[in-house]
Amino acid sequence: MVTNITNLGRSGLSDWLLQRASAIVLALYTLFLVGYLLLNPGLDYMAWSGLFDQTWMRIFSLLAFISLAAHAWVGLWTVTTDYLKSTGIRLVTQTVIILAIFVFLVWGIQVLWGA
């Protein structure tokens, strides 16, 4: 068994499941947004901001953001372990990635609920 502490769930199975579950959420979210845009051709700011005033939309969006964060982390963690063979460089890169993901997530929450 390979033990590697920097991945999310410490188990390949949980990472794998997370990756797939988050992908489904992101797919649904994307489909919803594309559908919404297509069904509302003359979309203006009021309508768009109205959509995001709805609590269910905020929860749905938050779920999508969290999914995106998890998906990105698992994916990028995999990429860094594939291609970055120096532990130092890999650790620094992973730190930058996780910080960036954290910042984007907090920022996203702020955008959703901050206004």
């Binding site: 068994m1 590697n4 188990s11 390949g12 199975l13 990472d15």
Partner: peptide, 10 residues
């Protein structure tokens, strides 16, 4: 249990 880590199979 030997295979569930992030590398061996996944």
């Amino acid at each position: 249990s030997e295979l569930e880590d992030p590398f061996s199979v996944f």
